[in-house]
Computed example of a mutant assay.
Amino acid sequence: MILLERNYKWLQPVLSISISLLLLVFTYWSININFDMTQMFSYMSTYLYLLWFNGFVFLSTKFTQFFDKYLPFEKHSSLRLTVELVSLFLMAFIFFYIVMVILNIYGAIDEPHVLNKNNTIIGIFHSLVLLLYSSLTITDDFLRKWRTDSLKIEALKQDKLRAENRALQAQLNPHFLFNSLNVIISEIDHDPKLAKQFALDLSHTYRYVLQSKDVESVTFETEWEAMQAYIHLHQVRLGEGLKVIITIDSASNQKKIPPLSIQLLLENCFKHNQATLRKPLSITIFSDGNHFTIENNKQPKNNSADTYNIGIQYLKESFKQLDTYASILVEEDDSTFKITIPLIEA
């Protein structure tokens, strides 16, 4: 069924014919003590039965297409299933009785073509078996559509993540770039060497943002190298208003994370907290080889946290793409905010 991909569709009619033959042999054997399998194909009823069974399997697929148009599963799942199965059973039984009538007309059987007990029992039994097999084709069709829809949803989810990633990357563009250019201008005369280093760090940061635009994961070492330049930009810009304590374990280097994860966490610290000489922003950065943690003191600005919430949600979904079991831990109280992200095995 759903395992039968396009190159193996020929197996479905072979399976249908095989089941109908086995069912026919069982029926002949059950009603005729002296049944000889070699004589089975001399009976007209054999060919009518095979035509009935396999023709109805084909017809059930057409029924499914008909109901897809007028009673789709997505809107009326319970009603659709009930109506389709009942319709198939009734049609199967009616067509079975038509076969009995044809056999009687041609004298192939002695039983009258009426719904007597034996004919009814045999008709119901075979119709139920046929209904069961036909229901498998219905299920197969449903699962194929469900799988296709699931792949489309997953693709849309990936597109959404990429769009959110680009939106988050764009955070670096307006105010950050403007402030950074002002720092370079002010330092050119005061400290040309620092201005040069600041320009190099700014270039390194933007180069990394552009290079990671369509990348699903990067090594921690790659991300951290770019983030050191990013941190240095803020240290120069904020001066004594920013205090950073860093402890990085080299065991973290080859682990994987979504690109710009650390940048997003750092950006949240700078964007949502004051950092002045009288009220410095203190950031503690720590990694132990399995996790990366950023903790800062809370000095909230009077602005919206919508971007922050979008960023954290983006991070959670991005990590899920790398590892289904990956989780992000957020801890905060009145004075501190702490977030820990996992480092994924390469």
Rank of each mutant, 00 (worst) to 15 (best):
I98M: 09
V244S: 06
N165I: 02
A155P: 01
A195K: 08
T139E: 06
K301V: 11
L115S: 06
K9R: 14
H291L: 02
N182R: 11
N268E: 02
G311C: 02
L181E: 01
A108V: 13
Q235N: 11
E111D: 12
I185D: 09
D189R: 13
S252E: 04
L210F: 14
S327F: 07
L264W: 03
L115A: 14
I285F: 02
S77N: 09
S335A: 14
V86M: 08
Y208V: 11
K279E: 12
F142N: 04
Q39H: 11
I102H: 06
I105E: 05
L23Y: 02
V57P: 00
P174R: 08
V83M: 01
Y206T: 03
F58V: 11
D249L: 08
L79M: 10
N273M: 11
V209W: 00
F286S: 10
I248E: 03
V236I: 15
I31N: 05
Q235P: 05
K62T: 07
T340Y: 08
N34T: 09
S16G: 06
S282C: 11
H234Q: 15
N309M: 08
V209K: 05
E84Y: 01
F125E: 01
E332Y: 12
L130H: 03
V236E: 00
F58K: 06
A346M: 13
V209E: 05
T307N: 12
F66L: 13
I245H: 11
F56D: 00
E295F: 00
H204P: 00
N268W: 02
L264G: 05
Q263M: 14
L202H: 05
T46R: 07
I122A: 13
Q158R: 13
I312M: 08
P259K: 04
I248F: 10
I310L: 13
I105M: 07
R278V: 11
G55T: 04
E74G: 09
S42L: 12
